[in-house]
């Protein structure tokens, strides 16, 4: 069964990567909305926002990247849902392949596609004045956290793709996730928010991730935020993976 796992996953990954490159709009839309938000916040609202930092592009880039990931994984749910509806999922499952490679191919595709749109976003941010003195090690840590966050949300998307009743449902689940960075430290410091909102903002996963990434590329000492961020990502990942596999089992039993 597992003897073909890597080969089969690679073949299916090649298939979904073709989907992505042939409908380039999926990458462009996942990158363009966050870029538009970045332009809006930097050049329209930015002048009025006091973050205590000189470079607002630096301040908001992590939040923008998280928004990009949250909207990018919606496409993963839609692609999986489309496979289920079109019958190609059943075709794969009636073939002598490693069955889990069907899901893993979608997961890896999500990682690659989100990676590409994040690179585009960082390049635009550089043009807008993003500057960092981060070391290679810090960059590796940033990439690691973003990859972990993407992986966790991708497994959430797999649940949505497997259980949705309609294509809108499959894609729509990500809206609350896209919204989460707005109620965090991503755009304005949480200190300005009224009590209950501030309490929510300071204790939801996005804030700790945003703070960690900011600390890493500003070369500031990293506080406990990184552990909170890792705990959130791993917690979401384990739970989402567990429910996704359960949903998958139900589909194929």
């Amino acid at each position: 069964m597992s003897t073909h796992f890597f080969g089969d996953t690679a073949v299916l990954l090649g298939r979904s990567m073709r989907h992505i490159f042939r409908s380039a709009d999926t990458i462009i839309t996942t990158a363009i909305t966050p870029i538009a938000l970045m332009l809006l916040f930097v050049y329209v609202f930015g002048g009025a926002i006091k973050t205590g930092t000189e470079n607002y592009v630096n301040y908001l880039l992590p939040g923008i990247m998280l928004i990009a990931i949250a909207s990018g994984i919606a496409y993963t749910a839609v692609r999986l849902f489309t496979d289920m509806k079109s019958g190609i999922f059943e075709r794969f499952h009636s073939m002598p392949i490693a069955r889990s490679s069907v899901l893993w191919a979608h997961v890896l595709t999500s990682m690659v596609a989100n990676g590409i749109s994040l690179v585009i976003i960082v390049l635009v941010a550089l043009l807008m004045g993003f500057r960092t003195s981060a070391s290679l090690l810090s960059w590796l840590a940033i990439i690691g956290i973003l990859a972990l966050f993407t992986l966790a949300l991708t497994w959430l998307a797999i649940i949505a793709g497997l259980t949705a009743k309609s294509v809108d449902g499959a894609g729509g689940f990500s809206y609350p996730l896209i919204f989460l960075p707005f109620i965090s430290s991503a755009f304005v410091p949480t200190a300005t928010m009224p009590g209950p909102v501030r309490a929510f903002a300071e204790n939801q996963p996005v804030t700790s991730i945003v703070n960690t990434i900011q600390d890493l590329y500003e070369q500031r000492p990293i506080g406990s935020d990184i552990w909170v961020a890792l705990a959130w990502c791993l917690g979401i990942l384990v739970l989402a993976y567990f429910f996704a596999v359960a949903a998958f089992r139900r589909k194929i039993s």
Partner: peptide, 24 residues
Amino acid sequence: GQFAAVDEILSGRENLVLVARLRH
């Protein structure tokens, strides 16, 4: 299956190659 389970975004040949690869 009941509905033609083909990959719309791939070409006809790519669909066949895909299945041939998965059948090793």
